[in-house]
Computed example of a mutant assay.
Amino acid sequence: MVDPNSRTWQALGLAADVVVVNALTIVCSLPVVTAGAALSAAHGTLLEMVREEGAKPARTYFSYFTRTWRTATLGWLLLLAVGSVLGWEYWALGRMDGGAALVAQAGVLAGAILVTLWAVWFFPLASRGRGSPAPRS
């Protein structure tokens, strides 16, 4: 248990690296505009950690952040715009009376689910970025 190469110490090291990546993602997401790049960088870094390709999570994170900044930020701004419109529509329909408004709100929620699914697909794809290594099979 005291041996630094034991499974316990390796698991604790991996957990510490995940905490570092999480903290970097939170700090880099504070300016709302860069949240997309932060999410993509976190995905790429964690993927490398799982594949045991890198030992420096901060350096890897900022490498992915700079490589994927443009694509991920444009996707994030698109997501913010569509999410804002969907949120406004849901709010406006909630102020209306009748069953048609309820049906329309259900449609807006379905659209929000589709946008969320798109985001779950897009940010990992953006983490591959231009010049980043392709995933190994």
Rank of each mutant, 00 (worst) to 15 (best):
W121F: 14
P135V: 08
S6W: 03
W91A: 09
T71Q: 14
T116K: 03
T66L: 15
V50L: 11
G129P: 07
P4Q: 02
L39C: 00
L93H: 07
L86C: 06
P124K: 06
R59V: 12
S127H: 09
L79P: 04
G131T: 12
A134W: 12
L79F: 15
A11P: 01
F62A: 12
G98E: 15
R7E: 08
G87F: 04
S127F: 11
A58P: 01
D3F: 00
A81H: 05
G99K: 04
A72L: 03
G94T: 12
G75S: 12
W69H: 10
T71E: 12
A23S: 08
W121Q: 09
R130D: 12
V20Y: 00
F123G: 01
L102E: 11
L109R: 12
A58R: 10
E48R: 14
W69S: 06
S6T: 04
V103I: 15
A58V: 08
R7M: 04
A38F: 00
S137M: 13
A11F: 08
G131L: 10
I26H: 01
A23W: 04
W121D: 13
G54V: 15
G13R: 15
F123W: 13
V33E: 01
A41T: 05
G129M: 03
P135Q: 07
G36Y: 00
G13A: 10
F62Y: 11
L114R: 12
R7V: 04
D17P: 01
Y64W: 09
T60K: 10
Y90W: 12
A106G: 12
A11W: 09
E53G: 07
L79W: 11
G54N: 14
L77V: 15
W118G: 06
R130S: 14
S127Q: 11
G44L: 02
W88T: 06
I26W: 03
W91L: 10
R136W: 08
S40Q: 06
L109I: 07
L14Q: 11
A104D: 07
Q105D: 06
D17L: 02
P135R: 13
V32K: 02
A81N: 03
D3L: 01
T45D: 11
Y90V: 04
L114V: 15
M96R: 15
G36M: 01
A134S: 14
T34L: 04
A81M: 14
L24C: 13
N5K: 01
G99P: 13
G111C: 07
V115T: 06
T73S: 04
I113E: 07
A38M: 05
L47D: 13
T45F: 00
